[in-house]
Nucleic acid binder design. Structure first.
Length: 872
RNA sequence: GCCUCUGUAGCUCAGUGGAAGAGCAAUUCCGUCCUAAGGAAAUGGCCGGGGGUUCGAAUCCCUCCAGGGGCACCA
């Protein structure tokens, strides 16, 4: 607060006789910002597009923002952290591509436009302008020659191109299906955009199901590759994201088994991961909302049809949320039909129950209540038979016996021993064991039995090995205005005609005369001049597809467009992609763990298959930063805990805020703004800055004349910082800089003094390290130290190996594990020498006293431990 | 319920078999015309609990407790 006032007064009276003006020791962040920002604008140190540039390349990418209002604290954190990495690689001699753009299509713009009666373009581009200004002031080291906005026709033209390429390949298709409908935003959503509680990721509304014909991208064709290629990312992506993606794709391996159904010509196929338990199947369950269920009851007696109808209505009334809650009692209805178990000819009653999902597997399961908890719950609820076919108490070869001989002998059985009767315990037997009651499978282990039964089913033609997935195709149609028009024309006969490539882009019509109010159908359908076109094939009247694309299409390939965002002849240049891509380091929030990252991985593989890129994963490494909270919860205006970035920047300065973001903790942890102190950051920066002010030597001074102890500290610092940055331990790096600043301050005030070469050497290291976090302060220090800008391109110094080893080391002498003496010894001392010194130590002799020495452990040069026992 | 990560100074975190650390905050002192800045010093710890391995454990093993995250009727 005070600092802010001081800074402003100073601005106002900058040509007066302000006493701060004469006090060069005063750190004035506002003046420093004002001084260096224009210099950087002039020098453009972060341009990356010079073809003559011989430096090796790195591509460091921050997830691009959505332009909703000005930048907020979350942006400030993300861009501060991404910038540390970009600046680090430049110091290490790399030509770093660090671009920025805007993900500027989407509903917030449209909704804001409706509310204020303006064009979404106006709202969007005004916000972009504001964010751009804020980012420049924030000194993020972006290459400003490569900016893109996805809402520019020059960008979304290539979305349309990509769509058409996928359409040609059969990867974009239309189908009629049950879809997720957001009743607030009045549009359909992809499965990925529905949260686990059944609400919309964007609007928060409870999503309902609607039957509609929509456009899909065939991501399921890539399910195996999307899953298997995650292994390549192990170690360079957060394991949390990898596991979320694995769960989302949800591959299950098992078998399809065909069951005859009495009175039905076609067999019913079920998917199971436990074909080994086929002999334990005692009933079959079909999803009540499946076509199969409807067909199975169609010829049934009226009372069966009635009870099924009632049940179906009950299921459809119960909300998604109800359906999602685990542990709800099992419900269902008998269909009065029977299936025949292909392995033993048994008649299995067929039930409909909502614990079986219509859109997973085949919408039908074989129920093995003894070995599946859900089936068991159902069997117990409806008094259906239960047959154990795996003896889980029988040890399998190589497995640990459940009961040891001693336990049998003493009668002390462990209480966690698995009992054998699921019917009385209510617990299904899911574990390993030996097959029983299973004919030829008896005695086999689970693994062998699965193999054996699949072979048998295949030879008999009643089943086969199978895989199934949780992931569904990506629904990309949206019934809203502010997005990429789908480049398809519908002929009068219902045919689909791709817009010829030379007619791209299909530009959005102006909003004049259009009602953007969401009403369940795309507003574009009402733009008569736009939607009515001549069929490109024969000139007959035709209509454009009125829907727009999911904005996640836009962001699934934008990292390639950055390679030349102004190229109007192609989406991107494969040669440039070869040079820069894939992205070496991607930085963004974990909220995109599935959505954006999965889609971008998918599209990259598509582009690989189409021959446009030579890699199959877009982002070689990923850093997820945490969120910025206030008082333990996410900031929001309605909660009244909103911290305004602009106010923080005015009060503490850009550098202090960036430093605070980096210092608050490990990058992936959340930051609670109530726990951190930007004022302390500012104080530290002032302290660091004064170091440079105090240095009185000149840049050409001979390092070798410097104080040895401080030089050692500085070179250890130079040696350890790169590893810490590459491990993303930015908070530790900041702490190390603080240590070096403290040591250097001491050297100036009560050591070798400000003129010593080691003080200059240390000050330069501090300036270079601060460039990662506090670029304005670093630049000003650099200038004070006698160098021209930009400090951002100064190369990190290599430490001298001979300054990294100490010439003496403190060896600890312990007696029975307690420290009794410390000896200054050479790092090269031998074990025998060290032991002799330890035994000679007066305090050791005193501690040992008359006790007998039984063992001496020597680890030269660090420690000697003398173990004793009482002599008598 | 399953999987996973984390428990070290008041706070945020280093330390992964060999002396318990850093920064920040708090405290005291010095200093300044005032305020803010600045300098110095000292304080602060059953390393979540218990058990084990070891000459030696914050570190390895077992177990319990607490917190975070992910998944959860997916056959």
């Amino acid at each position: 607060m005070n600092e802010r006032h001081v800074a402003h007064e100073r601005d106002a009276a900058s040509d007066g006789d302000n006493r701060f003006e004469n006090d060069e020791r005063h750190y004035d962040f506002a003046a420093i910002q004002d001084k260096w920002l224009p210099v950087w604008d002039e020098l453009k140190p972060f341009r990356s597009g010079d073809p003559a540039d011989k430096r090796p390349r790195k591509y460091v990418l921050d997830m691009f923002p959505y332009p909703s209002g000005d930048l907020h604290m979350g942006h400030a954190e993300a861009y501060a952290l991404g910038d540390v990495i970009a600046r680090y690689w430049r110091q290490q001699g790399f030509n770093v591509l660090h671009p920025i753009g805007w993900d500027s299509f989407g509903l917030p713009a449209e909704n804001a436009a409706i509310k204020r009666g303006i064009d979404p373009r106006e709202w969007t581009y005004d916000n972009i302008e504001q964010q751009r200004t804020s980012m420049r002031r924030y000194a993020a080291s972006f290459d400003w020659d490569r900016v893109l906005h996805t809402s520019d026709p020059e960008y979304y033209k290539w979305n349309q191109w990509l769509f058409l390429k996928m359409y040609e390949k059969g990867l974009a298709y239309r189908k009629d299906s049950w879809v997720n409908w957001d009743p607030v935003d009045q549009t359909v959503l992809a499965n990925e955009q529905v949260l686990p509680d059944g609400t919309s990721e964007r609007s928060g509304a409870l999503v309902v199901k609607k039957k509609l014909t929509q456009w899909y991208l065939k991501i399921t064709d890539y399910a195996d590759r999307l899953l298997d290629d995650l292994n390549q990312l192990e170690g360079s992506w957060p394991s949390k994201v990898l596991s979320m993606q694995r769960n989302w794709i949800g591959r299950s391996i098992g078998a399809d088994v065909d069951f005859e159904v009495e009175g039905r010509a076609e067999k019913v196929t079920v998917f199971t991961t436990r074909p080994d338990t086929l002999h334990g199947a005692t009933f079959m369950v079909v999803a009540p909302d499946s076509e199969l269920a409807a067909e199975l009851v169609s010829g049934a007696a009226p009372d069966v049809r009635t009870s099924f109808q009632e049940y179906l209505e009950f299921v459809q009334k119960s909300s998604e949320i109800d359906r999602m809650t685990a542990d709800r009692p099992k419900t269902g209805v008998f269909l009065n039909r029977y299936a025949i178990n292909p392995v033993n000819g048994e008649r299995l009653p067929i039930w409909a129950a909502d614990y079986v999902l219509a859109d997973y597997g085949h919408g039908a399961v074989m129920a093995v209540p003894a070995h599946d908890q859900r089936d068991l719950d159902f069997a117990l609820a409806f008094d259906l038979p239960i047959r154990v076919v795996v003896d889980t108490n029988a040890p399998v070869t190589g497995a640990i016996p459940v009961i040891t001989a001693e336990q049998l002998e003493s009668g002390e059985l462990p209480d966690d021993i698995e009992p054998l009767d699921p019917k009385t315990t209510g617990v299904a037997l899911a574990g390993e064991g030996r097959m029983i009651n299973s004919g030829s499978l008896d005695g086999l282990s689970k693994r062998t039995a699965i193999q054996r039964i699949i072979e048998r089913l295949e030879s008999e033609g009643t089943g086969r090995a199978a895989k199934t997935y949780r992931i569904r195709d990506w629904l990309i149609s949206r019934q809203r205005y502010w997005g990429t028009p789908i480049p398809i024309i519908h002929g009068q006969d219902g045919s689909l005609i791709p817009v010829p490539e030379d007619q791209l882009p299909v530009v959005l019509p102006p909003t004049e005369g259009l009602d953007l109010q969401p009403k369940g159908q795309s507003p574009l359908g009402a733009a008569e001049d736009w939607v009515n076109v001549a069929n490109p094939l024969d000139g007959t009247p035709a209509r454009r597809d009125p829907d727009t694309m999911d904005t996640f299409v836009d962001s699934s390939w934008y990292f390639l467009r950055f390679l030349d965002p102004n190229d109007d002849t192609k989406a991107f240049d494969p040669a440039e992609a070869e040079k820069w891509a894939p992205v070496d380091q991607y930085v963004g929030g974990v909220t995109h763990a599935i959505l954006h990252l999965l889609y971008a991985r998918f599209i990259t593989k598509v582009l690989f298959d189409l021959g446009y890129v030579s890699f199959t994963e877009p982002f070689s490494a990923l850093l997820n930063q945490g969120m910025v909270l206030m008082d333990g919860s996410a900031m929001s205006k309605s909660k009244g805990n909103l911290v305004r970035l602009s106010e923080q920047l005015d009060e503490h300065g850009v550098d202090a805020i960036r430093l605070t973001m980096a210092f608050a903790g490990p990058p992936e942890d959340d930051i609670d703004w109530a726990d951190v102190s930007p004022a302390a950051s500012a104080k530290f920066l002032a302290r660091a800055w004064r170091i440079a002010q105090d240095v009185t030597s000149s840049p050409d001074i001979d390092w070798k004349t410097g104080d040895l102890s401080l030089r050692r500290t500085t070179h250890r610092f130079l040696a350890e910082i790169p590893g810490l940055v590459e491990a993303f331990k930015f908070n530790v790096v900041v702490a190390k800089i603080m240590e070096l600043v403290n040591v250097t301050r001491k050297a100036i005030d009560s050591g070798p003094g400000a003129a010593d070469a080691a003080v200059r050497e240390s000050a330069e290291a501090i300036a270079m390290a601060l460039n990662l976090f506090a670029p304005y302060t670093a630049e000003d220090m650099w200038s004070q130290l006698g160098y021209p800008p930009p400090v951002a391109l100064a190369q990190w110094r290599k430490p001298s190996p001979n300054l990294l080893v100490d010439d003496s080391i403190t060896a600890v002498v312990q007696v029975d594990g307690k420290v009794r003496d410390r000896l200054e010894v050479s790092p090269k001392i031998s074990g025998d020498e060290l032991e002799a010194l330890a035994r000679a130590s007066a305090s050791v002799i005193r501690s040992v006293g008359d006790r007998e020495i039984v063992n001496v452990i020597v680890r030269a040069p660090r420690i000697v431990n003398i173990a004793t026992r009482s002599a008598g």
